[in-house]
Amino acid sequence: MNAISLGPFVFSNDRFIAIVTVLVFLAAAEIIAWRRPDHRDAIRHWTGTAFVVWVIAARLGFVITHWGAFAASPWTVFAIWQGGFDIRAGIFGLVATVAAVFLRHPRAGVPVILSIAAGTIAFGLTTLALPDETHGQIPTEAFADLSGAPVNLATQDGRPLVLNLWATWCPPCRREMPMMVDVAQSLDGAQDGVRIVFANQGEQARSINEFLDLTDLPPGGMIRDPSSALMQEFDLLGLPSTLFFAGDGSLQSVHTGEISRAALLAGIDALKATP
């Protein structure tokens, strides 16, 4: 399973791991601050600074690495809820912050390091508890497009496939759809390209067509899965979910939740590099 459900909320494993890591880091910092009243304000200030610096550095590293994906919509640089962080750049930011702490307020240095260590341990333990269990093959059963014609997802001619599961009632699905359709159209016809298919979950063709007309999106690449069989087959907990299949039909990765252009293109590049 690549996601975890907490009541009405569904988190992909990587996002849940990130949330736990941050909470443990901040909790550790607060506990240490309460035990060191003489330096409480400094500890809170520098642990908060370390967190902000990590976010900015990690995000900046990711943006620089994938700038081509952000150039079309620069504002998405600030859409950090979509994910996209470079851990190496974040670590560099933390090292710089720790160095600044020891220069400016040495007594806060050890508490900051201990808080980082607590977060690191939480990251490692949560990662072990929630391993990546991506496995499976492209479904062999036929689905229907919006005209009723059968579509066999397994007929790929050796091309990789990106399969997006969505619904018209799902706000993140509606937000990401125009971007994903734009990427799909840019790949259409490319000999080494990746096909993108949008599998609506549980809705009638009328509802889908009304949404496409309202948003001025084309029906190409849309298929219907009225019984939500794909969600059940791959044990998915929420929408949208984007599945990346290699050219041999094997499932390589799953992205649960709204996906950014950069993350989508990175996933496609990874598929092209898969033997």
Score class of each variant (00 low, 15 high):
residue 11 F to T: 11
residue 42 A to C: 04
residue 48 G to E: 08
residue 130 L to P: 12
residue 21 T to M: 06
residue 186 S to T: 10
residue 156 Q to L: 06
residue 71 A to N: 10
residue 228 S to M: 15
residue 103 L to R: 09
residue 266 A to N: 14
residue 132 D to G: 05
residue 45 H to L: 14
residue 220 G to K: 11
residue 244 F to M: 00
residue 118 A to C: 01
residue 199 A to M: 03
residue 144 A to W: 10
residue 170 C to G: 08
residue 81 W to R: 02
residue 122 A to R: 05
residue 134 T to V: 13
residue 72 A to H: 12
residue 219 P to Q: 12
residue 240 P to I: 04
residue 198 F to W: 06
residue 124 G to E: 11
residue 131 P to N: 01
residue 21 T to E: 05
residue 47 T to L: 01
residue 48 G to D: 05
residue 177 M to C: 02
residue 248 D to K: 05
residue 265 L to M: 11
residue 260 S to Y: 04
residue 218 P to N: 03
residue 234 F to H: 02
residue 182 D to M: 09
residue 190 A to L: 14
residue 130 L to W: 08
residue 162 V to G: 01
residue 74 P to Y: 11
residue 37 P to I: 01
residue 248 D to M: 10
residue 5 S to E: 10
residue 245 F to G: 02
residue 112 V to W: 13
residue 57 A to E: 08
residue 116 I to D: 09
residue 106 P to Y: 13
residue 95 V to Y: 08
residue 275 P to I: 01
residue 151 V to C: 09
residue 133 E to I: 12
residue 30 E to S: 14
residue 59 R to V: 05
residue 144 A to Y: 11
residue 71 A to D: 10
residue 27 A to D: 07
residue 84 G to M: 01
residue 21 T to K: 00
residue 275 P to W: 06
residue 22 V to A: 14
residue 22 V to E: 04
residue 159 R to T: 03
residue 245 F to V: 01
residue 52 V to E: 06
residue 47 T to Q: 03
residue 41 D to V: 09
residue 23 L to S: 05
residue 187 L to K: 08
residue 260 S to V: 02
residue 230 L to W: 03
residue 152 N to S: 13
residue 19 I to M: 13
residue 145 D to A: 07
residue 1 M to Q: 13
residue 222 M to Q: 15
residue 187 L to W: 00
residue 232 Q to G: 08
residue 58 A to Q: 03
residue 242 T to S: 07
residue 224 R to M: 15
residue 228 S to H: 06
residue 120 T to N: 08
residue 31 I to A: 14
residue 204 Q to W: 12
residue 70 F to H: 07
residue 82 Q to N: 09
residue 83 G to M: 07
residue 243 L to P: 08
residue 68 G to A: 04
residue 27 A to N: 05
residue 185 Q to C: 07
residue 167 A to D: 01
residue 204 Q to T: 15
residue 111 P to A: 02
residue 170 C to K: 10
residue 14 D to L: 11
residue 223 I to A: 02
residue 266 A to I: 00
residue 59 R to E: 03
residue 113 I to V: 15
residue 114 L to H: 11
residue 113 I to L: 05
residue 102 F to N: 02
residue 238 G to S: 03
residue 1 M to E: 09
residue 188 D to N: 14
residue 53 V to M: 12
residue 191 Q to Y: 12
residue 89 A to M: 06
residue 39 H to K: 12
residue 231 M to Y: 03
residue 55 V to G: 01
residue 53 V to S: 13
residue 246 A to P: 08
residue 115 S to Q: 11
residue 166 W to K: 04
